[in-house]
């Protein structure tokens, strides 16, 4: 028994080693290093590694007092709360629709996947035109049916609509990615399961909610976690469309309605050059991501192995 346990460990190591070696050098060490950075103040730019001033948890304390950081976290949660369910819902919907035996399904799959390979920056620019005040296509469409709510400020210029507008662009761009994952997973569900349900007289909706969705749980779990991580890192979409705006008054201060933490992080790192502060910010993001993931694991863990 002992020998086989050892053999099991050794053979596992063989499978793991290529990944673990690269992980150790190029991910684990930088991870460790950036945590160390979060406990330091970085002043010099040249030879950063030897020019650190240890400050303990001062960066973290400063972050808790930083109103803009708190605001950015709120905006990030708002962003995640919109994009994760919408993104997953759209992907699932497309996958289920295209899993039908349609003659043109291959064509549609390609159509929905193509935007995913486009540069987010390019997509952002195009949508900026569509959303723009006075001249934008969407603004005009609303005007023709008598809605002038968007005429003066467009969609991205209004605090209430800016974030949803950014989310919609990203959902439409990214749905093809989730669709593929779901389509691939749908292949693993044997037809026999559906056939048995049909014999029992299950409707289309019942099959979807009682068979398909529960069996897709591992993928959904993956999509939720990856989606949350992406939301915590969101930067390009904001950079391309709103640069953090439009302004909202919070007490005395004006903050940006799309000023998400990913954007603030970039600002802190490259504009303000506060590398230690940025590292501390990243670790708070990590803590949040881990918490959210653990909750998801609890909620989405498959009840029975199948």
């Amino acid at each position: 028994m002992k020998r086989s346990a050892l053999a099991e460990n050794v053979s596992a190591l063989v499978f793991l080693s290529p990944f673990i070696v690269i992980f150790g050098v190029f991910l684990a060490w930088p991870l460790f290093y950036s945590f160390y950075l979060s406990l330091n103040k970085v002043t010099a730019l040249v030879n950063v590694f030897d020019n650190l001033t240890f400050v303990g948890f001062q960066n973290f304390i400063a972050l808790f007092k930083d109103g803009l950081f708190g605001w950015s976290l709120l905006m990030t949660l708002y962003y995640a709360a919109l994009i994760v369910p919408l993104g997953i819902g759209t992907s699932l919907l497309l996958a289920v629709l295209l899993n039908n035996k349609l003659r043109l399904s291959r064509l549609f799959r390609t159509a929905f996947f193509l935007p995913y390979v486009l540069d987010l920056f390019v997509v952002g620019i195009v949508w900026t035109f569509i959303y723009s005040p006075h001249f934008g296509v969407l603004t005009r469409i609303f005007e023709t049916v008598g809605i002038t709510y968007f005429s003066e400020q467009g969609f991205l210029g209004r605090p209430a609509t800016a974030m949803p507008a950014v989310v919609i662009v990203n959902v439409l761009k990214g749905a093809g990615f989730g669709m593929i994952l779901y389509l691939a997973a749908l292949q693993n569900i044997p037809d026999s399961v559906y056939e048995a349900a049909e014999v029992d007289g299950a409707s289309w909706w019942q099959k979807l909610t009682r068979i398909t969705i529960p069996l897709l749980r591992p993928v959904t779990l993956f999509m939720v976690i990856v989606g949350v991580v992406a939301a915590l890192n969101a930067f390009v979409e904001v950079f391309a469309m709103t640069t953090g705006g439009p302004s909202v008054n919070v007490g005395e201060r004006a903050y940006g309605a799309t000023w998400v933490t990913g954007y603030y992080l970039f600002d802190t790192f490259y504009v303000r050059l506060k590398l230690g502060y940025a590292a501390a910010m990243s670790y708070i993001l990590l803590a949040i991501a881990v918490t959210v993931s653990l909750i998801n694991l609890r909620l989405l863990r498959p009840k029975t192995d199948y």
Binding site: Y131, S132, P133, H134, G154, L156, G157, T258
Partner: peptide, 10 residues
């Protein structure tokens, strides 16, 4: 002024 300064304006 045509609102060029807005986020998302032309």
């Amino acid at each position: 002024e045509g609102g060029a300064w807005r986020s998302g304006g032309i």
